[in-house]
Design a protein around this nucleic acid. Sequence first.
DNA 1: TAAGATTTGTTCGTATGTATC
DNA 2: GGATACATACGAACAAATCTT
Lengths: 252, 252
Amino acid sequence: MASRKTQSKPKRSRPFQVADEIKSWVVEQGLQPGDRLPSEPEMIERFQMSKGTIREAMRLLQAQGLVATKTGPGGGSFVGEVSTERAHALLANFFYFKNVSIDDIYQVRVALEPENAASLAGRLSAQQLQELRGIMARYEAPAETAEEERAQHIDSLLFHAKLAEFADNAILGFMIGFLAEILTELTVYKRLYSKPNHELWREGRDHQVALLNALREDDPNQARSVMLEHMELARRLMEDQEAVVMKRFIAE
Amino acid sequence: MASRKTQSKPKRSRPFQVADEIKSWVVEQGLQPGDRLPSEPEMIERFQMSKGTIREAMRLLQAQGLVATKTGPGGGSFVGEVSTERAHALLANFFYFKNVSIDDIYQVRVALEPENAASLAGRLSAQQLQELRGIMARYEAPAETAEEERAQHIDSLLFHAKLAEFADNAILGFMIGFLAEILTELTVYKRLYSKPNHELWREGRDHQVALLNALREDDPNQARSVMLEHMELARRLMEDQEAVVMKRFIAE
DNA sequence: TAAGATTTGTTCGTATGTATC
DNA sequence: GGATACATACGAACAAATCTT
């Protein structure tokens, strides 16, 4: 039997190796966001590699949002917390070539948004409730034109994004926020609404009023069921829309 | 009133600009995974920038999984589809500094897994069902040691990851798969189970048997409710465990 | 305001590694 | 094996940003 060549590794190029080592190093040292990383010359010395290679490694980490760099005195590379926006963008790239339908998005929203609403009941500060009311105020009157309705739709997505931001559960909040974000991108680039529908507008608005009450009154079950109704209404509303989404990369 | 300084742009460095342009270009041209990108010298010519800058830009895109490069004749840069594994890793980085509790993960699993189970009822091929049975076979007998139980737990997570892989809804599937992945990483690095519990093992196994039946018999409601029970059991099982997770970056 | 120090950002020339023919 | 085409890597110099004095 011919023994297999000991070539188990596809051979990672040097910048990737360096990036991996830095990542491990950050974890081992328990470094926190804002902590300093070694300067370029120090890394050149430590890894015995050229400046270009080190810089490419840093770019790999920067793209993932793991480090940030500043020029000038006191500058250098720092551990960076991945921002929500960047995480949204990176994830949107993943879905770019998949075909995701609007109903796919809503299937997940229907499952997640009521859960978040229930969790938030009785836990929002007066200021947070006020912020939500402020967003709702932007669509107090029914839209008269398709353009107005589009703007209101985006504002209502902002309402849901705010709720996601307030979530204690970081995973739940992130996922809901992501769905709101891609729906927003969608409506910016496509005309989803042809004609305003005042009855649906009223129904949706009643939901949000009831939801705010339930959130304030610390009534998780009511918050959950109101949000569920709201999501199912929205799902029906979007039902006839184009099935293909993700026409572009979300900007970072 | 002092007028605000017209410093709207934080000024992106050149590699980022180049990366952005290439991204836009891919979208505009409707390029697909596997399509060729211009060679290094061509990009140097087109962007009028040095090799180093171009290479750093390519590294930015590589880190996001958007392009892949090969050396040698016929080599070059190609549009690359972001792999599920890479997307998992990038997202795990986002949660690294957040504090995510095990219950946070389960709150989302309880909401999503039953939905996926219902969607899959009656839609799995004989081969897919066989694959699921093959995984289940790995934990047919109750574990005798904590070590065995740990291995079984990971196998059962693999069962859920498989279900996620089979999902038609790419978003739903991705999110469920991600949760299974981080739970797997968790159990690899921590001892979650202290002593085997045969009754809980039997209960969990009964769930999966019933689930497979419901999936085969095209009974969405049954699949959903069985999975819901299963998730709630698992959630109770994990309840006493350590609250802090994400002790490391998931490898790419 | 201006000069100097510090650190990353960018360029160019050259050489090496690797895969295909 | 040799030629070719491509990415990969190095080193030295210069440019730009930003902080301090």
